[in-house]
């Protein structure tokens, strides 16, 4: 067994425990309809991973333009692919919650707006990659676009929700810096955050290796 296998086994057990705890061990939060609050254990971590991937892909893009090392482009591409999957997951889980709590799947709540925005960025990023055949140019243009998108995100995420009124529950660490969760819930929530981050790291690693192999296969004809 390699170190990777051991880590993978641990991740599997950890996620199994998180899923069990999310449904059976943690209590349902007061002030939410029925069991609906349990979605927080999955919705927030996916949104967190979506944001994290966006950050990683920004850093990898900057590094690519600085070093011109194709491995950074592989990383930027891998984390963007991961980002788009988790963005869709966060959108779907959020939409289900919105349906139960607020009665409709979509309200253009500021946070829903921000995540749509993230989805648009990712879609544009992949549309751009698809439209450039030359590999070096593709990597460079995609990196430039990722950086441009990244610098506009703070405006949407931080400024727009402050201007509009929001239905969205307070973020976990809210503006007052206070934690508004039952202690059991909080423990499961943190464990789930850690678990999803581990899951994302594993998927990211896989995606990087696959992409590197794919490119190596293409390189061999040169």
């Amino acid at each position: 067994m390699t170190r990777r296998d051991i880590l993978l086994g641990a991740l599997f057990l950890w996620m199994a425990a998180v899923i069990w705890a999310a449904f059976l061990w943690a209590p349902a939060a007061a002030g939410f309809l029925g069991q609906s609050s349990r979605i927080v254990f999955f919705h927030v971590p996916t949104a967190w991973v979506a944001t994290l991937s966006f950050l990683v892909s920004f850093i990898a893009s900057v590094q690519y333009l600085r070093t011109r090392d194709p491995r950074w482009d592989v990383r930027a591409h891998a984390s963007a692919s991961l980002g788009i999957v988790f963005t869709i997951l966060a959108t779907v889980t959020g939409s289900i919650f919105a349906r139960i709590m607020w009665g409709s799947y979509w309200n253009w709540d500021p946070r829903e707006t921000s995540i749509t925005f993230l989805l648009l960025i990712y879609a544009a990023y992949f549309a751009l990659r698809g439209a450039v055949p030359d590999p070096e140019r593709k990597a460079a243009l995609a990196a430039v676009y990722a950086i441009l998108a990244f610098v506009t995100v703070p405006f949407l995420v931080f400024v727009v929700p402050r201007i509009y009124w929001s239905l969205h529950p307070d973020t976990i660490i809210n503006t007052k810096g206070r934690i508004t969760m039952d202690s059991r819930m909080f423990r499961v929530f943190m464990a789930s955050l850690a678990g999803f981050t581990g899951l994302a790291a594993w998927l990211y690693d896989l995606e990087c290796r696959i992409e590197a192999l794919r490119r190596k296969a293409e390189e061999e004809i040169l």
Binding site: P133, D134, P135, I221, L222
Partner: peptide
């Protein structure tokens, strides 16, 4: 000098 456009190799070495 080697150049590849997508999968098409134009020159090498």
């Amino acid at each position: 000098i080697g150049k590849r456009f997508g999968r098409r190799v134009v020159m090498r070495g």
